[in-house]
Design a protein around this nucleic acid. Sequence first.
DNA 1: CGCTTGACAGCACAAGTGTTTGCTTGCTAT
DNA 2: ATAGCAAGCAAACACTTGTGCTGTCAAGCG
Lengths: 219, 219
Amino acid sequence: MRSSNGLSVRQEKILNYIRDFLKKNNYPPAIRDIQNDLGISSTSVVAYNLRILEEKGKISRDGKISRGISIPGMTLDQTVVTSHGFTVPMLGMITAGSPLPDPEAINVEDAEQIEVPAELGSADKLRDVYALKVRGYSMVDALIGDGDIVLLRYQETADNGQTVVARLVDENAVTLKKFYHEGERIRLQPANVTMEPIFTTPDNLHIQGRVVGVIRSVE
Amino acid sequence: MRSSNGLSVRQEKILNYIRDFLKKNNYPPAIRDIQNDLGISSTSVVAYNLRILEEKGKISRDGKISRGISIPGMTLDQTVVTSHGFTVPMLGMITAGSPLPDPEAINVEDAEQIEVPAELGSADKLRDVYALKVRGYSMVDALIGDGDIVLLRYQETADNGQTVVARLVDENAVTLKKFYHEGERIRLQPANVTMEPIFTTPDNLHIQGRVVGVIRSVE
DNA sequence: CGCTTGACAGCACAAGTGTTTGCTTGCTAT
DNA sequence: ATAGCAAGCAAACACTTGTGCTGTCAAGCG
């Protein structure tokens, strides 16, 4: 049985094992590591399959050198100074009232990527995070101003007081507000004393993410 | 002779060699690689210095395993990194009143580095930029809150209305305020209606930088 | 059927490599 | 001086690890 990329099941397993090993240890596995952990009975089998993987360009090897395996595309040439940050897609602008494409609907691959400092969270914390540029002053009391970039973790629920991107289904509008669930109704509170809250019901509300960070550039 | 980070010249060379080797081959060097290429007469010398490097946290090793060296901060990731961000030194905390080491005086090499998204400016714009963590609420009206990280460009002058890090010479205090030059005197204005401005004279004031960005992490 | 080929097993050898031990140096504090 | 110690040296030692046979087995083929 072969998988779609023309590798045998065993080769696929080996390749994945190498990738995982590399991620975990930051150095390549020895043939015997592969052999033992994948339960292969002989080192020669591993060597045999490694040869094939190399011929197919999936890995590259420095012969005779122990652990001389590397995977093209996995490099560690990054900034030595710190662990590098992560990139999240910039999905557009948000203003009270303007429609926002659903994060799931738009092609994340094509979206402009912006970088996020590692200080804002680990890779895990930044899973499903996207960015929006804020227009307007409705959140100034939450220290979010016009032109700020907010980082949002995609989630469909929120706790009281959290700042969320909320879609009002009937109005087909999206807005950045503080979320409060009050009995049967939901209150979306602007963080600006001059603005009035919006009241709605749970079934008219679709939460599209929660603010996890703010980035601002000052002239 | 020691370099600023407490490593001997030889240790520095070894560390750099490992880095370069890693970049070039994507797998770690063997002790003998280091020995030969750096012209060291014995493997034990390399082992000796590697032990020290590990104790100082500059590298980490998986004992006995060949080529089991890795450098914390250099990780194998497959993510095609479009890294155009930059790193700036995090020089400490700022609160109205607390003293701050002069950016020129402290060793920038040793300071923790934090990453800055490319969106906050080009390499040129980020020259001489450093970061401080804000404590307190004196700048909330300028959308800077407790726990925020402010990015500062080192400069000794400022225009009216800009937010600056100002050192009051006589008081030996450093504070984050809005800067206004009013005739003979200077007004340092907190961005918080409940707080009073500070008045001083140009010769008692030493500007240490201007806010060019804000980064905030939200729980 | 005999032959070839791909895939795997077992095993042993020879490099590849990290560690250890014992021996210098050069410098510093007592 | 003299002991103490970091740093370096050299060689020996022992474990790690890649390779190279030698076989086995099932599938494909004329």
